[in-house]
Each structure stands twice: as C-alpha cells, then as structure tokens.
Design a protein around this nucleic acid. Structure first.
Lengths: 151, 151
DNA sequence: AGGGTGAGTTCAGAAAATGAACTAACACGG
DNA sequence: CCGTGTTAGTTCATTTTCTGAACTCACCCT
C-alpha cells in the first residue's frame, strides 16, 4: 500500500497520520504552536524546502488544521493560522516533546515548562477524565480492539 | 535540509521525529502497543512494503524503541518487542488517537477506551504533575523558548 | 532605476518507496 | 527424499517524492 493512500484506512491513528503524518508536518505544527504564521518563518524554522513546505501547508489547510488568511491586500500577503482543530494538537505535541526529553539521549536544553495556573515547573501527565487518576498502558482496556488495518 | 538530517537539530520535537517521524513508523508502534511482535504481523496490519517495514523496524531497534529477540533457534525466528522507551510512547499515541476521534471527520468506530482502575469509559486528559489540574495551551509557559532550529 | 520583501512555483537531479519475486533455514507429511 | 509451508527477510526495476537553486509576481522604498 502506498503511504498516500493511508487516508483510506479506517483507524483513528491512520486517519491522524493521513493529516499530520508526512515528514516536516509535525515541525510545522511545533512552530505554529510557538506563534509562527508566515511562510518564510516556517521555512527558516523547519528548514524544509520551499516546495515541500508549500505542499504541507496546503495539506494542513485542506484538512482544517490551519487556515490561510490574507492580512494585507497591497501587496497581497497571507499568513497561516492554527484552527481550533490545529490547536487541539497541542497536547499531542507536548506529550511527544516530553517523551523526547525524558526517554531520548539528551541533545537539547530542558524545555522549562511552567503551569501558569499553579506557577510550578511540571511534567505533563495523562489522566482519566472520569476519576482523575493517572492512566498507564496497563490500566486501559478497549471495548472493541481491531489490530487489522481494514476494520 | 534533508529529512534524514533531522537528527542533528537540537530540539526535543525534532529529536522525537528523528526516531519515530518516518512514514509507517507510528502505525508500527500502534500495532506493537496492541501486542504485535512478528514481522508478518506488522506487515499485514500496517500494509507497508516489506522493504520499508524492515528498514523501519531496524531504525526503531537502533534507537532503543524496540528490541529484536530470538524466540526460537531452529529455525531461527525473531520477534520485535517494545522496550520501556517504546512503551513510554503509549500516552503520545493515546492523545493522537483521541485527537483523531474528537477532531477529525469520523471514518472509524469509537475506540471505547476504558480505565480499569475506575471502570469507566474515559477521555485522556493532560494534567499538571504538580497541581493535578488540566493543562491547556493557554496555561503553559516556557522558561526559555527557541523558535529557530539551530538552538 | 535598482534593491528589497513575502510568498510562492518550476525544474532537473537525487533519494526513497513500492510490489513482486526471490532467498534462507528449517518443519512436517507422505 | 520430495514437495509444501512458515517466518523473516533481501533484491531490484519502476514509480513517486524530495531537494536546492533559481525564477516569478506584485508590490514598496529610495
């Protein structure tokens, strides 16, 4: 199966990858979440080629993760903004970054995440919406599990 | 910059992508977390080509996310198992899947996640390790933010 | 007129992915 | 011993995608 046909696979993870699974896309989202909006800003930050970046941004717009907004008419200038759907990826990126910081050989400075509500430096944790306790791989079950890609 | 050089970028997200950012890799991890261990199991579930799958599995082993274990000597047979580093990706995959289920047009059945500790169906939430309250994009700040890829 | 900026597009060459077939190393049944 | 089956790959010709550099367009500024 071709990677470009991944969108046809009826699995939530595959559907997510169809939208944000191409190379560079996660780095684009990282920068968007940090406030980047302009084409050249993304190009400098990600260092993807202009052609690839253009393709990826269009793809994200098509899938409702970002929107392309004209912010100046003369000369015509655009910026790319995260939609609510795009901003909802923040927890995913945060968990990914935290995994990287805690489980990969260190090649980066500590991120210094601070929770402004309580004022402390913190680690992001995944908890249960119902009881508030931590969720671990061992304490989750799935009512219907499908291993195969076809459904 | 070439995608294969992404590992040289000193940013946690880029480092994570260097390990799990290639196409198919996240689907391999999805299946590994569901209990897949054998080459052909991964091939059937992901539908990646055998060559690509072989390359990706080796890459994950190199980076300590999976290990290749001989489980039978005659004939020699191996299986791929998640290491602790690999299992630690479960929260990332869970948040990704949850994003897909809640923010993408539905093309899949609901996952039916249940927290065995409390017995309820639940949604995974990201909370602060210090105060236990929900973390949102608006309630996080970073002590040192770097937008550029160079550091 | 000449230079600069933002947002791309174009294109030839390089790199990576695909699918099908092939290999290896054995087990099993007859 | 022979043919078939299983697991785990490798090989390779073809197709697809990515890369970097240059180029375009539409303006503004001096």
């Amino acid at each position: 199966m071709r990677w470009s046909e991944i969108e046809t696979v009826p699995c939530p993870v595959a559907q997510a990858m169809a939208v944000i699974g191409d190379s560079w896309t996660v780095l684009i989202l990282r920068d968007a979440l940090r406030g980047a909006t302009k084409f050249d800003e993304f190009q400098t930050a990600t260092r993807a080629s202009r052609a690839t970046l253009s393709e990826r941004l269009s793809h994200l717009v098509e899938h409702g993760v970002m929107e392309k907004v004209q912010y100046e008419a003369h000369p015509p200038r655009h910026e790319y903004r995260l939609t609510p759907r795009g901003r909802a990826l923040q927890p995913v990126l945060m968990m990914l970054s935290h995994w990287s910081e805690t489980h990969l050989p260190v090649k980066t400075r500590s991120t210094g995440r601070r929770h402004t509500t309580c004022g402390h430096k913190f680690s992001p944790m995944v908890t249960c919406s119902e009881c508030g306790e931590a969720v671990t791989p061992e304490t989750v079950s799935y009512d219907r599990t499908r291993i195969d890609a076809k459904g």
